[in-house]
Simulated assay, not measured.
Amino acid sequence: MGRGVGRRRSRVPQREGGYEVVSKRAAIGAAYWLHLAAAPTFAIMAMLTAVIGGGSMDALCSAAGASPLGGMVPMYLLMTAFHAAPWLKLIGSHARTSRKDWT
C-alpha cells in the first residue's frame, strides 16, 4: 500500500471547538427557524388562495361540490394546524418564564 492510501483525512476537524461544532450549531439554528417558518407560510398560502382564488388547481383538488372541505384553502389550513406545535411550545415557554417573574 502506498503512503496515505486508505488513510485520508477529512478537511473538517473531528474535535470539539473546530469547524464541525460551528457547522452543527449553524444547522441547529437554521432548523429552529425553519420549523417556525412552516405554520405562517401555510397560513399565508391559505389567505392568498382564498383571496386570489385557486383557479384550475381547485378544480383538480376537489370534485365539483363533493365536499365543503375540498380544495386548497382547507388543505393549507390543515397544514397550518399540523405545523403549529413549535409556535405553541414557544408561547408556552414564554408563558412559563413570565409566570415565574410574577411569583
Rank of each mutant, 00 (worst) to 15 (best):
G18S: 13
R8D: 07
A30H: 07
A26Q: 10
A27Q: 15
P40L: 00
S23Q: 14
R8V: 13
R7G: 06
R25T: 11
A43S: 08
A46I: 00
L48Q: 14
L34S: 05
R15P: 07
R11L: 13
A26I: 10
A26H: 11
R25W: 07
R25M: 10
T41M: 06
W33A: 09
Y32T: 09
Y32R: 14
A37L: 11
G4Q: 02
A27V: 06
R11A: 15
K24H: 13
K24F: 10
L34H: 08
R7C: 06
Y19H: 04
M47S: 03
I28R: 12
T49I: 00
R8S: 12
R8H: 12
I44D: 01
L36H: 11
G18W: 03
H35M: 15
A26C: 11
V5F: 12
A39T: 03
R8T: 11
M47H: 04
R9I: 06
A26M: 14
R11V: 15
K24T: 07
K24I: 13
E20G: 12
L36Y: 04
L36F: 10
A31M: 14
S23E: 15
A26D: 06
Y32E: 11
G29F: 06
A26T: 12
W33S: 04
S23R: 15
L36C: 07
M47Y: 08
T49D: 08
A27C: 06
V5K: 09
T41K: 00
S10E: 12
R25L: 10
I44Y: 09
A38Q: 09
L36A: 03
V22W: 11
Y19Q: 08
